[in-house]
Nucleic acid binder design. Structure first.
Lengths: 188, 188
DNA sequence: TTAGCGTCCGACCGATCGGTTGCTATATTC
DNA sequence: GAATATAGCAACCGATCGGTCGGACGCTAA
């Protein structure tokens, strides 16, 4: 599964091939397929494994922070670290950005799964933003969904900056945008 | 070429297949390939054709606006329209978002072409932002590259919102984000 | 000891991939 | 009217695709 996630992050979930995966793992195609039954099942399992890694790297580190703005900031910082340093797990960049673009114009279980996971994450972000508004850490007229929407865009830009342009200062660019979106960081 | 662009926007530039394209066009594979010689050449030509359509739909309408913030606003509005209504040319959403994610982890002419086109557009956006700062329409301490960076992210989010979630209010969400990024629109 | 089960294998299937070859039909040009 | 160039075709190539099949191996429980 780990190698499948790595492969898919580079080649896409459609480019994740039974033959290629089997060769890399020193197995036969039938041996690999036996565990899943179908390529689509393999793709879905890969997506779930990737989601678990995302939760572990981005959500878990922020879990202990106080709900609301502190936790939202912790999420955003872990998210930057994830984009910058998760090269071993996701050598081709964020799997969910890739999968979203890959399946957003098709039908089927894959598209549904991607939309479900993306929607879940968006709701998580909006939930924290809502708590931040309730706590008075964000302006009263803030739309939590709007915050979540802009955050997602910001991190897709970060993914492109790192993967396509190889920009070293991409993390700081994102932090600057976060300052404007969530207010300056208190640690400064 | 038109049909190739439409196909690639749905299936990706790699999913753009000689056989599929030939069948849709009522031609033979050899007949299609004869015009390009190589699949990679077809992909590059498709990318260029898509870029021409993008320029026509997003850049041309804003060309007559005054350089700086007015033109930047005109670009952003045309860009939203492009995302919302270019379903005939790009039924699978923005071709450049797709291509960027598809090739950002690979090597070769396709990746170079995508990076070149994306970089060009980023520089165009930054150039207008810089003019806006010089004209006093944006704060003095504004980083034009930062504006361009955040704009690109914003429109990738818009592309996802339309294609993956089918959200009808996606354009307005983007306009709200633009208000915060470039200041409220004067037309209000 | 044996039966069953999970894991994996090599061999094979039809379909499709990108690409090559030799040919024909239609224009254009000299 | 002959020569040339263009565009298209059917047929075919080796490779790879996802998937199927029968069987071999090792483990565990009866």
């Amino acid at each position: 599964m780990e190698h499948g996630v790595a492969l898919a992050s580079v080649e896409g979930l459609e480019g994740l091939t039974l033959g290629r995966l089997a060769t890399d793992l020193g197995m036969s195609k039938a041996g690999v397929l036996g565990h899943f039954g179908t390529k689509e099942a393999l793709q879905l399992a890969t997506l779930e494994t990737g989601a678990a890694a995302f939760r572990r790297l981005v959500w878990e580190p922020a879990r202990d922070a106080e709900p609301g703005l502190p936790r939202l900031r912790a999420i955003c910082e872990a998210w930057i670290t994830y984009m910058e340093t998760a090269r071993d797990t996701f050598p081709g960049g964020c799997l969910f950005t890739t999968a979203s673009v890959e399946f957003d114009a098709r039908d089927g279980a894959l598209r549904d799964a991607v939309a479900r996971l993306s929607g879940l994450w968006r709701r998580r972000l909006a939930l924290e933003a809502r708590a931040a508004v309730a706590a008075g850490d964000l302006p009263d007229d803030t739309d939590p969904e709007q915050i979540a929407y802009e955050l997602v865009g910001l991190y897709m830009a970060l993914n492109q900056e790192i993967q396509l342009f190889g920009a070293p200062d991409a993390g700081d660019r994102t932090r600057r945008a976060l300052d404007r979106l969530l207010g300056p960081r208190p640690s400064d």
